[in-house]
Design a protein around this nucleic acid. Sequence first.
DNA 1: ACCTGAACACCGTTCAAGT
DNA 2: ACCTGAACACCGTTCAAGT
Lengths: 240, 240
Amino acid sequence: MSNGPKRKPSKQSRGKRRPPLTRERVLHAALAIADDEGLDALSMRRLGQALRVEAMSLYNHVANKDEVLDGMVDMVVGEMEMPLLPDWRAALRGRALSAHEVLLRHPWAAALIESRLSPGPERLRHHDALIGALLRAGFSLELTYRAFLTLDSYIYGFTLQEVNWPFDRDERPDVVTNIEPHVTAEQYPNLVQMMGFILSAGRGDAAQPGGKAAAYLAEYAFGLDLVLDGLAAARARERQ
Amino acid sequence: MSNGPKRKPSKQSRGKRRPPLTRERVLHAALAIADDEGLDALSMRRLGQALRVEAMSLYNHVANKDEVLDGMVDMVVGEMEMPLLPDWRAALRGRALSAHEVLLRHPWAAALIESRLSPGPERLRHHDALIGALLRAGFSLELTYRAFLTLDSYIYGFTLQEVNWPFDRDERPDVVTNIEPHVTAEQYPNLVQMMGFILSAGRGDAAQPGGKAAAYLAEYAFGLDLVLDGLAAARARERQ
DNA sequence: ACCTGAACACCGTTCAAGT
DNA sequence: ACCTGAACACCGTTCAAGT
């Protein structure tokens, strides 16, 4: 759209011609750093380094770090499947499973999305589609509002727990072993029993058929279907 | 317990005798700062200032800032009502309502709790009681596990949304007015319709009987009862 | 035993100066 | 038009030095 009209071939196109900085490139680099090194590693200086530019140059393309974070959030939301299937329940279920997948691909994203104030265009579009799906299915405005709150509470709440789960993560055996000595069967009998069950059932483990991504899938689906059942019942009650 | 045995009356007890620094005092001061000024305002230097001490002195009582955050989280969890009622459903419902109240009193806490890796003693006790309540009610280990995940996903997910909600907060009219121009009825028809409903119904507003604290209570209770209904049904299915 | 000054290696952001 | 050096006001944390 705002492509410069005259772009000379430029004789010095040998060597490491770094492409011009754009908002797009800044956001993509930021997302890559967060995925690879975690959100804490993402500083404006680190971001500049990844783009072979001084940190101050970034401010020509984004207003500040908050705008970077908002942009990252919207990119992630854009990866989520929109609820478009004609059957409302299938549409909501597919969207919830897709959101879960996307949030596991970007483990830093769930917390960030929930903490951002101003939604970007992707998020607005996504929510518009979600509300539309419910209204078309005959949900009243009030029930649509409640269904939306309940569903997203579950989706983000579950995924946030999952992403920060300290158990059974091979990367953090220190955390598990640091906790265990404090958790004795006399003090916390139920907790110890539960931990035994979880470990013996091979749950929440990378030792799953689908690997780590599928570790909590059955648990996620349980609560998801529970919520969908509840919404179906509320919808039925509403229509007498 | 570790009270020094000999504590002389000390002749210079006039003026501003600041009490000795302890882990307890550090954590209480940290919690007060987070409540009053937000979690971002809580730095080790600011914390030292509140306690009339240099920041470096804090390290004699806590290992590092992470330990401060862990301590704050555990204090907040300690405020939540434990699920002790004999009726499992009443116990879980009361606990969920109490957790919601506590998390609204400390708006920074929900995000922090979910991001902490090592649970403190209060949290361990709380979860032990929760699991115990479900097991005593005849839930299997597997269903207890799933009930726990579903409930806490909902509780924290909902509260996290509520605490960061940009709409209808008198403190942040800027955010609302900044968003509105971008959200046109042509682009986001369903969203606009929903926003109209929410505002006209006086929902999510401080203009509620119970004030801000009660603004989303009906919505929170809707999803909570939906989850509890689902768990009751799952329990009934399990026992044939 | 507890507190502190100085220091280190970081942050986000501004702004005048360069090309 | 875009990039940068220097600077400002912050971080968490260490450590030798003080009392």
